[in-house]
Design a protein around this nucleic acid. Sequence first.
DNA 1: CTTATTTCGGATAAATTTATCCTATTTATA
DNA 2: TATAAATAGGATAAATTTATCCGAAATAAG
Lengths: 144, 144
Amino acid sequence: MFSKACEYGIKAAIFIATKSYEGERVSPKEIAQEIDSPQAFTAKILQALVKNDVVSSVKGAYGGFEIDKSQISSIKLSQIVNAIDGDSIYNGCGLGLHTCDEAHPCPVHDKFKAIRNDLKLMLENTSLEELALNIKSGVSFLKV
Amino acid sequence: MFSKACEYGIKAAIFIATKSYEGERVSPKEIAQEIDSPQAFTAKILQALVKNDVVSSVKGAYGGFEIDKSQISSIKLSQIVNAIDGDSIYNGCGLGLHTCDEAHPCPVHDKFKAIRNDLKLMLENTSLEELALNIKSGVSFLKV
DNA sequence: CTTATTTCGGATAAATTTATCCTATTTATA
DNA sequence: TATAAATAGGATAAATTTATCCGAAATAAG
Ligand code: FES
Ligand code: FES
């Protein structure tokens, strides 16, 4: 469904958000430990999230990654997925035709489109805030 | 969403079904042309479909791939996807946790599970028959 | 200014998926 | 029985994704 890179990116963003509520910056090392991911690869993905304004980074001593507390509620899962996996999940043909086109539909177009749209709405309506709060309260988990 | 192998497998099965209605067997070459896929790779995927009893093959001269006319309506998309991509799409965690477990859910578990289940139901309720008939009647397409 | 710390970014490597090639085996027909 | 046609399947190659490594650049603190 999502690429590994995207899975790591989502989990990393959630973890950064939980720490940002406490005013703490985090390093790729700490993130990788918390979400059980390869550190250097995770660092690469964080760069993509920085470029797409999902998280911000501070270089140098006492630096790290953080998310502005006031923005956590307005960041949607769709932004993260889009930043890492692009928009093929929102627009691409389920059977790999060059473009998903109403006028030239593949055999599963109608049915696939419905699922794809539900997924799109879900991602667009899910904020980093609710995901991070569920982690903080211990009702959901980032690893194992 | 689906692997390339799975996309080819689905399209191949649909094409074989359309020809089977006319009592014709088809070769990997003809299939690859009709669904715009690499021939040898498609042949490999067909082997998996044969092993999983989605299509049957006849070796030797005048051989080829076919699907028993009377079975086309009872073959579901889910069988094909399962034969090629396995069941991770039905049961796997959206964020890559080892298992999707109600008692140890990832942050997107509830929302992801709903989408995943819709997809599962869609695949289980879609028969090769309806997909093949739509191709035959020209309302949907297997390539471009 | 120097040093320690930390992200950035390019190069490389490993693993997986996608794709190709070639031979063996099977089968219908002459 | 010989031959041609067709799938089966193993070995290999290419492409993509995943993962690692290392030096450059930035920054806070002494
Ligand atoms: S054309 Fe395939 S999903 Fe729309
Ligand atoms: S635990 Fe992640 S989807 Fe169920």
